[in-house]
Design a binder for these strands. Structure first.
Lengths: 186, 186
DNA sequence: GTCCCTTTTTGCCAAATGGCAAATGTTTTA
DNA sequence: TAAAACATTTGCCATTTGGCAAAAAGGGAC
């Protein structure tokens, strides 16, 4: 819990009661490697803060290939704010993970009680989205080797935690190509 | 102005005074084709609603190539909310354009006076960002021809309005490749 | 350690894309 | 309208990446 509080404090101040309230309105939970956290077609009504682990957001492209759209690491939120429609993607724990979970109702409780809770979390989500966009845009404009090098910079801890196939599908190359790229770099 | 109001009404209601206020706190302006609206390194403190025209957001990648990160068409906002640092990108009018411009101060005025102005506009910006992410992710996972076809779907009016080079740099292919792809489709 | 299962690497060849420069087409300007 | 400037297409060939299947390497269960 301190981990989450510390994270939020980067964006805003919180007093003791507020911290208490956050704690009361959430539960800690864990997921095993490969477990699905959200599934396509179903509603996803949670807000979650990753304490430990790596998640990947996936979908199937027009050729039916499984694409890793994005990785989310510890100390980040997973959420679908302003969600209107059910998910078209699914979220999978790529490693064993621990998270702090807020139900829709609990989150609302926090919004109603903590002044600026919405402002703070909007800021957090917006920031995260911007970062996402930035990272994705380098995936379009660089060749495969550069993409991999940038991936290593942006997600330095991931290489040894998730299988190469996932990374390949994130970078938009086949796993054999990525394997060759890897070989050429060393 | 009605165009902007109509757009906002999709997201929330506005009464006559509020509409009046929006009108008073903005100016209509135009840009010529190829004119820069925002430049890298400078601060970008405006909120703008595009009445007519197409903008592109660009940057230079690691090889010094000019990359079109995104296109923004009429009936969309251009803004940099929560902007902390100066821009690393630049925004260029890809066609002759008309826009409604809000200065930082004017925008603040609206925030302070119109209840929910921030909520509404956050929603708008967030929606736009999500769409952006979705579009970009197909640029990573598909081959060049499919990327072009998806581009045609998503930006159906753009093909004849902006030069092929811009589209190529958005799709992450060279202009000659895009030219060949185009030929093969017909 | 051995077996089984999964992940990663490799070989071979085909297909896609890039690089460069010339040719062609289109638009603007004087 | 002619010339100039710019945008697009094309040819030629090199390089990158993909597809497929087999081999090798790792990891876990017993």
């Amino acid at each position: 819990m301190e981990q989450l509080i510390e994270y939020i404090l980067q964006f805003s101040n919180l007093n003791t009661q507020q911290i208490e309230l956050i704690s009361k309105n959430s539960v800690e939970t864990e997921l095993h490697k490969d477990e699905y956290f959200a599934e396509a077609g179903k509603r996803f009504d949670y807000y979650a803060f990753i304490l430990e682990g790596v998640f990947r957001i996936c979908y199937y492209n027009r050729k039916g290939e499984e694409i890793t759209k994005y990785f989310v690491e510890e100390n980040h939120f997973i959420a679908n704010p302003y969600r209107a429609e059910p998910f078209t993607e699914y979220i999978q724990a790529a490693t064993y993970s621990k998270l702090i979970l807020f139900s829709q109702q609990q989150w609302k409780e926090l919004s109603n009680t903590i002044v600026d809770w919405e402002t703070i979390t909007n800021k957090i989500f917006h920031n995260a989205l911007m970062k996402k966009v930035d990272r994705m845009s380098s995936l379009v404009s660089e060749d495969a080797t550069t993409r991999y090098l940038i991936f290593l910079e942006k997600f330095p801890t991931l290489v040894n935690r998730v299988p190469l196939t996932y990374i390949a599908s994130y970078l938009g190359v086949t796993q054999s190509s990525l394997s060759r790229i890897r070989k050429n770099i060393r």
